[in-house]
Lab assay of single mutants.
Amino acid sequence: QVALSRTQVCGILREELFQGDAFHQSDTHIFIIMGASGDLAKKKIYPTIWWLFRDGLLPENTFIVGYARSRLTVADIRKQSEPFFKATPEEKLKLEDFFARNSYVAGQYDDAASYQRLNSHMNALHLGSQANRLFYLALPPTVYEAVTKNIHESCMSQIGWNRIIVEKPFGRDLQSSDRLSNHISSLFREDQIYRIDHYLGKEMVQNLMVLRFANRIFGPIWNRDNIACVILTFKEPFGTEGRGGYFDEFGIIRDVMQNHLLQMLCLVAMEKPASTNSDDVRDEKVKVLKCISEVQANNVVLGQYVGNPDGEGEATKGYLDDPTVPRGSTTATFAAVVLYVENERWDGVPFILRCGKALNERKAEVRLQFHDVAGDIFHQQCKRNELVIRVQPNEAVYTKMMTKKPGMFFNPEESELDLTYGNRYKNVKLPDAYERLILDVFCGSQMHFVRSDELREAWRIFTPLLHQIELEKPKPIPYIYGSRGPTEADELMKRVGFQYEGTYKWVNPHKL
């Protein structure tokens, strides 16, 4: 086992960053958080920038500027975001240094004079007029057009580079997404736009490419001749908990499936790229999406959770019991969808996408189930092999396979070949997804960000279904809070070829 401390991990990262040409360590950078008073800024962006600063992973002359409508001070920003920093008493001095680099400007999102004030403020910072500028839009999409237009007109660096990070949702359907994309691309070049999907920053999602293309053993079996089906799962054990009003506007397909799960599907299904260059990788992902037809209604199961009468606390409440959810809402909190990649490698292999709230566990994984062994000599005792990439929690890679049961006879039983990170790298604290992705933006690497043509294809696949749901308002199937979801989803999976045995229990190697 390799035991690495946080300091050692960050030392390795620093070495990698400083050796590259793309990370300008000594240049002045300004990180501007648009929507600095909001939840995302408070819980994710400010803490992430602090962790990067604490670990010495930001360029040395980096300033952080918050911008929002609320009249706040840096002290206010500190008060609301610091509880999420997880700072230790030993880091007190470092924390003071961090907040000394912070400033805040209040202004409207659609007022040109406010942006001119913001620009004057940035120019007044040390070497601010020639600094590289990175704008993070932690804002609702309704203000994107006004904000990007004003940034472009008043706040661009004339000497350094300018980059803009856009948070999902990128529209509600193909038409609104196209409108937003066309607007942003009329102001910024594609190499300046970073559409963030934080799932692409997760260690195991990034590991998929290495697993596939750096190991000879997987190449020959990664196709329709050997793989019976692919299941991509995202499960949350909690409901909307008072935030249903926002969720109800989008629903589970827009929230998770059309982005996170579809991105994971691309990494499983794509061909080997010409290189690890950002556009070479994204070219292959677009090719996969172009091979997927629009979702067919007979390959869809929609569910909505109801309270568990035997549960406790939140578990007793259904989705419609959330006071922020519109009365009688038919918005799905669970969806199972089957897609097919219609190309030579994957023809006929079902890709089953499942996601839901208020389920029995927290889990995100990719599961490849292989065909049955031909010419069975073990009297149907063999179960199908599976390769599982567990994204969260407890990152893991393992192969479910058959071995001989101890004893006199040739009785096979299920076991696993474990390729888990935790076994080799004991207690290594890896940077989280937002840390990686923000560092990628500083480096100018777009590999783990969504390109406009990729986004367009993703919406093309799901828009007809979303429009049909909005028009017909089908009643989702009720499922109990804390269950596996509607049984109809299991029946759909069985119908397209997935075999669920229920006889195997994964042993978490992190707890051995």
Rank of each mutant, 00 (worst) to 15 (best):
V256G: 10
V256L: 14
M257T: 15
M257Q: 06
Q258P: 03
H260P: 15
L261H: 04
L262A: 09
L262V: 11
L262N: 01
M264V: 14
L265K: 01
C266S: 15
C266T: 14
C266P: 10
L267S: 14
L267V: 12
A269E: 02
A269K: 01
K272Y: 05
A274W: 12
T276V: 12
T276D: 10
D280V: 08
R282C: 05
V286N: 07
V286A: 14
K290N: 07
K290P: 00
I292N: 01
I292D: 01
Q296W: 07
A297Y: 06
N298G: 13
V300D: 01
V300N: 01
V301Q: 03
V301A: 08
V301W: 00
G303T: 01
Q304H: 03
Q304T: 10
V306G: 06
V306K: 06
V306A: 07
G307C: 05
N308S: 10
P309W: 05
D310F: 14
D310T: 13
D310G: 12
E312Q: 10
K317D: 09
G318M: 03
D321G: 05
D321F: 03
P323Q: 06
P326W: 09
R327S: 13
R327M: 14
G328I: 10
G328D: 13
S329H: 01
T330Y: 13
T330I: 07
A332P: 07
A332L: 01
T333Q: 02
F334V: 02
A335P: 01
V337Q: 05
V337M: 12
V338T: 07
V338N: 07
L339S: 03
V341D: 01
N343S: 11
R345V: 09
W346G: 01
D347W: 11
V349D: 00
F351L: 02
L353T: 01
R354A: 08
G356V: 00
G356L: 01
A358M: 01
A358P: 01
L359P: 01
L359T: 03
L359K: 01
E361F: 04
R362T: 11
K363P: 02
A364T: 14
Q369C: 14
F370R: 00
H371E: 04
H371F: 06
V373G: 14
G375V: 07
D376N: 14
F378Q: 02
Q380A: 08
Q381V: 07
C382H: 09
K383R: 09
K383N: 14
E386Y: 01
V391M: 15
P393F: 01
P393R: 03
N394C: 12
E395M: 03
A396C: 14
A396R: 13
Y398S: 09
K400A: 11
K400L: 14
M402Q: 12
T403V: 03
K404L: 15
G407C: 14
M408P: 04
M408Y: 05
F409Q: 15
F409T: 15
F410E: 04
F410G: 07
N411E: 10
N411K: 11
N411V: 05
P412L: 14
E413W: 06
E413S: 11
E413H: 07
E413G: 15
E413N: 09
E414Y: 15
S415L: 15
S415K: 15
E416R: 09
D418M: 08
L419M: 15
T420P: 11
G422V: 08
G422D: 07
G422C: 08
N423I: 04
R424F: 12
R424L: 09
Y425H: 14
Y425I: 15
Y425F: 14
K426A: 08
N427V: 12
N427D: 15
V428G: 12
K429H: 12
K429V: 13
K429W: 09
P431G: 11
P431V: 13
A433T: 15
Y434G: 14
Y434V: 12
Y434M: 13
R436F: 12
R436C: 14
L437M: 15
L437T: 13
D440L: 02
V441C: 03
F442H: 02
G444I: 01
S445F: 14
Q446K: 11
Q446H: 02
Q446I: 07
M447D: 05
V450I: 15
V450C: 15
V450P: 11
R451M: 02
S452M: 06
D453V: 02
E454H: 13
L455P: 02
L455H: 03
L455F: 02
R456W: 04
E457L: 05
A458R: 15
A458D: 08
W459N: 13
W459E: 14
T463P: 01
L465T: 09
L466T: 11
E470I: 05
E470Y: 07
L471M: 03
E472N: 12
E472I: 05
K473P: 11
K473V: 06
P474Y: 09
P474H: 11
K475H: 11
I477D: 09
Y479D: 02
Y479T: 02
I480E: 11
R484G: 11
A489K: 01
L492R: 01
M493G: 10
M493I: 13
M493W: 08
K494S: 11
R495K: 06
R495F: 07
V496L: 13
V496A: 10
G497T: 14
G497M: 15
Q499I: 09
Y500K: 13
E501F: 05
E501S: 11
G502S: 13
G502A: 15
Y504I: 13
Y504G: 12
K505W: 08
K505L: 09
W506G: 13
V507K: 09
N508P: 15
P509M: 15
H510S: 07
